[in-house]
């Protein structure tokens, strides 16, 4: 694929926060802690460039560590879906 090297550099872009794929155990713990089903989580498209780069699959939950103006750092979760 063209431009793969450059694609990696977008992870360093100042607008892109850190994305981490949760493993099965972490995912279940999270859903239990929040007491929700995975469909209730915010979504992220499987075609999202960052999702492609970190190699997440449909049904994975991605933990996003945002830089926040108010809290310094805040954590957000998104479920990978087909849109």
């Amino acid at each position: 694929m063209k431009g793969i090297n450059i694609n990696k550099e977008i992870l360093d872009h100042y607008l892109v926060p850190k994305h981490i794929i949760l493993n099965e155990k972490e995912k279940n713990e999270l859903l239990q802690k929040l007491n929700i089903s995975e469909q209730q989580l915010p979504k992220i498209s499987i075609n999202d460039p960052i999702v492609k780069l970190i190699g997440a699959k449909e049904g994975d939950v991605i933990k996003i560590i945002r830089k926040s103006h108010t809290a310094g750092e805040s954590i957000y979760y998104r479920l990978v879906v087909k849109i």
């Binding site: 450059i6 550099e9 977008i10 360093d12 872009h13 100042y14 607008l15 892109v16 926060p17 994305h19 992220i44 498209s45 999202d48 460039p49 960052i50 999702v51 996003i64 945002r66 957000y76 998104r78």
Partner: peptide, 19 residues
């Protein structure tokens, strides 16, 4: 690349993702 800016939000969505 790390500091490039554009005011086209849809372009950012397509190239850099939803976050």
């Amino acid at each position: 690349i790390s500091s490039i800016k554009t005011n086209n939000i849809h372009e950012i969505y397509e190239v850099l993702g939803i976050e």
